[in-house]
Design a binder for these strands. Structure first.
Length: 580
DNA sequence: GCCGTTTTCGGCCCGACTGTTTTCAGTCG
């Protein structure tokens, strides 16, 4: 079994954690160099196991030292340097670095002066009031560390919250702060704005000339369980659900610079600053300015900052330092899909499905409110035992929908088919072909072997009565891994049969995943962005689906429902003509 | 440890908050 790039990255991450202890700084050049190497490897499509050292050094951020370590790992299964570090810093000791407020320097002091090797030692030292004797630490620090230990399981440094949990909390807080009179604007930033699947903490930027009023209001919100920091322009709290939220107040003039800074990613920011430096400019959270004279070049909007750096605007969802800065510099950055490009929604339930919660009439009203040109009801088909509709029910629904003539909105009759364990589908082929649109999805048997899942998906894709595959992996972020399947053969099948791959905007799903979207983009696969709405409140998911597509660098040309309805109809017909 | 519009050595992104200091170190993002 060949060693995957992911395994190599995992080893390098461990090396980073141990090197931070060794160097006593997370900013040490050696640490940063390793982190840069990881970033480079993450965007590498070749298998490192098949490269020689010279080829590895060609990867950005990987030098001779890292390359030889990777080679050593591939050849021998271990790295001498890593083994030495593991011996010097056993797991019980390394675990202490997860305590918020305890950094590498404090840790080393604890060890050398108090012989603290693990959590029990540390607790004993706190009980004996020994920590306060260390230089730089007092009774207050001791109490803070004690409190951090108690909460370790709740919000350690490496706790990640699924985006579906973090988003509503962030939206609530943003709305709360927006309500203040002195507040001009509010935006959540950080990994949430970049639309990462899991969020470390929520960062919120407030534009206001009255920072202290914002700070007071924020730390007093009812959802605040604990205040970690409360300064003049920056405060951090823990919510009752255990999520950390940081709020930073800047003046309206600084708002754009602050948003760039706090949206990140960290690697993206570092690269922006390097570009600034090379142009004799200084970029911080307040402005982009001349490093000699201090004269401000740009600060109010994000767009002005990118422009002043000689870059095309980069959407937040693309700011991962995965080539977007280089593309923005030479003008080749893709013009990714925007919410305005979307013309219709092709995965849409009503309360005719057992799990649907709004009536057909209400769902139509919601679609009209959104300004959609067309929708396809896709209530569950018969094989989904609890939810599915019989043939007769489907025909009844079809008749009912035919009589609905909402102004400016065309209604298609579709269904969400169920992909069985062996790739079989609901009803018979003739009946499936009677629908205007169909999306076929996996709802069960999540743990089959990859070869079996791959064959199962390809069988469904090859059916003339299937227009799209819904939530391809079936994952629920933070709760359930997706099915395992071979990405390329599945996408290849979708390509040659003319089957669309859904990008499902439900936050727990965000499925297809970003790697599938990127690969499909390269191959020329057609995607469809859908809300999978089960209630009128779910239509906002279209924006989430669009952001997921942006993370995959997808342009409107490759997304079916950016087109008028006749193009959708031709797409369905073309596949049927090809396969029947 | 990496890298080169400062090119094989010397630099590497920048600032707020806290607790301990009387000007700064550590941590965090």
């Amino acid at each position: 079994m060949a060693v995957s790039n992911q395994q190599i990255i995992a080893i390098l991450r461990e090396l980073v954690a141990l090197t931070i202890l060794e160097e006593e700084s997370a900013q040490a050049f050696r640490v940063r160099a390793l982190e840069n190497a990881i970033v480079g490897i993450e965007s590498e499509t070749r298998h490192l196991a098949e490269l020689d050292e010279k080829e590895m050094v060609g990867i950005k951020g990987v030098g001779t030292s890292t390359a030889s370590k990777i080679r050593e790992f591939l050849d021998t299964g271990s790295i001498k340097k890593l083994d030495a570090l593991r011996a010097a810093y056993p797991p019980d000791f390394v675990a202490l670095s997860r305590i918020p407020g305890v950094g590498p320097k404090t840790l080393k002091r604890m060890r050398s002066d108090l012989n603290i090797e693990n959590l029990d030692d540390l607790k004993a030292a706190i009980d004996g009031e020994k920590l306060r004797g260390l230089p730089g630490l007092g009774a207050k620090s001791e109490a803070k560390i004690a409190q951090s230990i108690e909460r370790l399981g709740l919000h350690g440094k490496d706790r990640r919250t699924p985006i579906a949990e973090a988003m509503p909390i962030a939206l609530d807080m943003v709305a709360e702060l927006r309500g203040l009179k002195t507040v001009e604007d509010v935006q959540y930033c950080g990994s949430l704005r970049r639309f990462s699947e899991t969020i470390g903490d929520v960062d919120i930027i407030v534009s206001s000339n009255d920072a202290s009023a914002v700070m007071e209001h924020f730390v007093g919100l009812p959802s605040v369980a604990d205040v970690i920091a409360h300064g003049e322009t920056k405060s951090s709290i823990i919510t009752t659900t255990g999520l950390q939220v940081d709020v930073r107040v800047v003046t309206p003039d600084e708002y754009g610079a602050a948003m760039v800074y706090f949206t990140g990613s960290k690697a993206h920011n570092i690269k922006l600053r390097q570009i600034a430096l090379s142009r004799g400019l200084l970029l911080n959270e307040y402005s982009l300015s001349d490093s000699e004279t201090g004269k401000v070049k740009a600060s109010k909007t994000e767009a002005s900052i990118y422009k002043a750096l000689g870059l095309a605007y980069i959407p937040p969802t693309m700011r991962e330092d995965s080539g977007e800065i280089e593309a923005a510099a030479d003008g080749s950055i893709p013009q990714v899909v925007q919410l305005d490009d979307i013309k219709g929604d092709l995965h849409f339930h009503s309360d005719w499905s057992g799990d649907g919660r709004s009536s057909i009439e209400d769902m139509i009203g919601a679609a009209r409110d959104r300004g959609l040109d067309y929708i396809s009801f896709t209530d569950h088909a018969i094989d989904l035992a609890i939810n599915g509709l019989t043939k007769d029910q489907m025909l009844e629904q079809r008749g009912l929908l035919k009589r609905k003539r909402p102004r400016g909105l065309t209604i298609l009759h579709g269904t969400e088919l169920n992909i069985g364990r062996d790739g079989s589908l609901d009803y018979d082929l003739d009946f499936r072909l009677g629908f205007d649109w169909t999306v076929a999805s996996v709802h069960s048997s999540f743990d089959l072997d990859p070869e079996v899942q791959t064959a199962r998906l390809i069988k469904a894709i090859s059916d003339p009565g299937v227009a799209a595959i819904g939530h391809l992996s079936g994952r629920m972020i933070g709760r359930r891994p997706g099915i395992q399947f071979e990405m390329e053969p599945v996408l290849e099948a979708a390509l040659v049969t003319g089957t669309a791959i859904e990008i499902n905007g439900a936050l727990p799903r965000l499925d297809a995943t970003v790697d599938v979207i990127r690969k499909g983009r390269e191959m020329g696969v057609t995607f469809v962005i859908s809300t999978d709405s089960h209630h009128v409140s779910n239509l906002r998911r279209m924006s989430y689906g669009v952001q997921q597509a942006q993370r995959g660098w997808l342009e409107p040309e490759q997304i079916l429902n950016t087109n008028p309805l006749d193009v959708v109809k031709k797409f369905v017909k073309a596949k049927r003509d090809l396969l029947t």
